[in-house]
């Protein structure tokens, strides 16, 4: 029920976003067909491009065609390679998903563990170390971190391959690099919220039951602090998706992000359009997922049972 409500709320945004991307070529200054065809194009070339873009048809028909292009290989083709965009997406989507969710999961895990440790050893060495590391984590350009990672782990130590995506081992380094930012953000959120929660009376109730302090923190304080941390962090995780674009390019990982950058640098508009659309859908999906997670963590948001 809640899920349906959230989907209903996301739908209009998704509609506006997809229409915006659909009209993307129209934002290009000048006649899109002329832009696409280049300065030396003849009128016949332009007419063909117009036909291919479907610019002669009414807008709703073109929009519907555009949407179907996500799955229908016959509808949209890359200017640069001539390959159907639907095929490119189908091939690359799983790699981006693996990278993003791997990094998200690892980041949440690392962030929670270090956040709890920081709260427990407030003011101690660990706390200071993590504070410095997490500041470094949010200040470090992810592409630089990636390069350093390649240099250390791939070139010098030879533990992981430097580029490609053929084995699971290829994903280790990119996931590690991409998880630093969410881990740093989440660690700080967990610490702050845990310290906030530590003053609550229900923890004294838990102590009065004769529970160990460890159990009081992990069973009672932590779930309560995660509720607030997750809802705040949800917004930030979007930036992690952006990070995946950069990470894929650092590691030569052929995912959607790499596709997008190749499209941008070669003015391959259908590729840009569809990969931006996929990222937006993906982003909205992550926000939905965060909402669901918050709801799962906090029974008060589930409504009357």
């Amino acid at each position: 029920m809640f899920m349906l409500k959230r989907l209903a709320a996301a739908a209009p945004t998704l509609l506006v976003v997809s229409i915006l991307i659909f009209f993307f070529v129209n934002f290009i200054p000048g006649d899109p067909a002329a832009q696409l065809a280049g300065p030396n194009a003849s009128n016949e070339d332009m007419a063909v491009i117009r036909e291919n873009l479907g610019l002669n048809e009414p807008a709703p028909t073109r929009y519907w065609r555009f949407l179907r292009g996500v799955v229908d290989p016959s509808l949209a083709k890359s200017f640069r390679t001539g390959r159907p965009v639907a095929l490119e997406i189908a091939e690359r989507m799983p790699k981006t998903l693996a990278l993003a969710f791997g990094a998200l999961g690892l980041g949440l895990l690392l962030g929670t563990v270090s956040g709890v440790c920081c709260a427990v050893w407030q003011g101690g060495f660990f706390d200071a170390a993590v504070t410095v590391l997490s500041l470094a984590g949010i200040s470090m350009p992810i592409y630089w971190l990636g390069l350093l990672g390649i240099w250390l782990f791939a070139v010098n130590l030879g533990w992981f391959p430097a580029a490609g995506a053929t084995t699971p081992l290829h994903f280790v380094l990119p996931i590690l690099v991409l998880s630093t930012r969410p881990a740093a953000l989440f660690s700080r959120l967990v610490t702050a919220n845990l310290l906030e929660v530590m003053g609550k009376e229900y923890l004294d109730t838990a102590r009065s039951k004769g529970l160990s302090e460890m159990r009081v923190v992990l069973r009672h304080a932590l779930p309560n602090s995660l509720v607030a941390a997750v809802s705040v962090a949800g917004v930030q995780f979007g930036s992690m998706l952006g990070g995946s674009v950069v990470t894929e390019n650092v590691f030569g990982l052929p995912g959607l992000g790499r596709l997008l950058v190749q499209g941008v640098s070669s003015s391959d508009y259908p590729v840009v359009q569809y990969s931006v659309l996929m990222f937006a859908v993906f982003f909205i999906a992550i926000n939905l997922f965060t909402d669901l997670l918050t709801q799962w963590l906090d029974p008060r948001t589930r409504g009357a049972a």
Binding site: T13, V16, L20, F24, M240, G242, V264, V276, F279, A280
Partner: peptide
């Protein structure tokens, strides 16, 4: 604002650069 926030930031920046040219 909601619509703009529906794109990961660097993706939006890339799309804008794609339109305007690098």
């Amino acid at each position: 604002v909601d619509v703009l926030l529906s794109f990961p930031d660097i993706v939006l920046a890339l799309a804008i650069v794609a339109i305007l040219g690098p």
